[in-house]
Design a protein around this nucleic acid. Sequence first.
DNA 1: GTCTATATCGCGATAGAC
DNA 2: GTCTATCGCGATATAGAC
Lengths: 195, 195
Amino acid sequence: MAMKTKDRILDAALHLFNMQGTGAVSTNHIAEAAGISPGNLYYHYRNKEEIIRAIFERQFAALDVAFELPTDRLPTLEDIQSFVRVNFEIMSAYTFIYREMIALLRQDAVLRSRYIAIRARGYEGFQAIIAAYAQSGLLTIPIDDHTITQLADICWLISEFWLSSLDISEQPINDNQFQRGVDLMMLVLKPYFKP
Amino acid sequence: MAMKTKDRILDAALHLFNMQGTGAVSTNHIAEAAGISPGNLYYHYRNKEEIIRAIFERQFAALDVAFELPTDRLPTLEDIQSFVRVNFEIMSAYTFIYREMIALLRQDAVLRSRYIAIRARGYEGFQAIIAAYAQSGLLTIPIDDHTITQLADICWLISEFWLSSLDISEQPINDNQFQRGVDLMMLVLKPYFKP
DNA sequence: GTCTATATCGCGATAGAC
DNA sequence: GTCTATCGCGATATAGAC
């Protein structure tokens, strides 16, 4: 069976948003790209804001899975690396989100609180991993709670904004660049962790 | 003598953009806030894009000064810190810029190339400072060129996106928060530099 | 569910008087 | 330099037929 219209609208919207930004794309454009009439689009979604929210929710669902940590053992540095890499992969499918995120969150309180919750899970992931290391004596330098928080802050900053930084300087977004971001994070952590 | 109309338009636009975002603010709104007619606004600026460019140029001029390094002596860690703090101060007067930057730069190639040039100066500032340390033997660990570049990458990431990160989590933007950003940067550099 | 037709609105931009 | 008046356009959203 063919894909539901409701989903095709989202696919079309995501594609257009990624290429032109949410501001330049109207509901008429989305309807046309989805191969339906403007009126039909409004049967499925109240307005553009709701379409944006639905796309965010798609990404949230993907991130929520990516932010899972192993529960049966202590996380390792490799876990951090794949954690970040998957995060980058998901983000790169939704480029319009990181390009306009702050502005979009400001305009939609529902979206903002949803994002802040998802974000907290990712941040706490970093904190948990670093804290786990600190407790297991795998450190070259002992670190206090404040330093753990700071290291998690930097890790989060890299995972949230590294792709933005590349985008601004017009660099392509690919596996190589993902690795560069991962390497930056490892450089920050390296002085504290045993190899 | 009272301020020129051309400047009052920019002041009004900056204020509205910071509060509501460029998308929600029309030229009519700007004219009203500036206390002039819509027609008069178009006498001074071709369109909204040109107003946005003019505001960017204001910020560029301020950043360009902030990115000056001492030429009569080697830069110090204190130089880095004030460098970043001033950067934060300037950015915080133009919040709409960092909120929408990536999207705005994508829509305006003129703006993008201007920004990339200014940005390069800031980045090279970090690189120069770190390299100066590396050459003067003030390091606890020797570092190669690649590491210098990576450290500069991280420093730049913090200085460019730390305020964005605060904004997303709805934290106030003030001196204390500026200092937190500076502290993060120092944490990254600390393992390599002698106290 | 999907279409066509349409109402309403506000934006960007210009013309022309002063 | 500044104003008023206005045109043309496209966007959002709804009504009603199929």
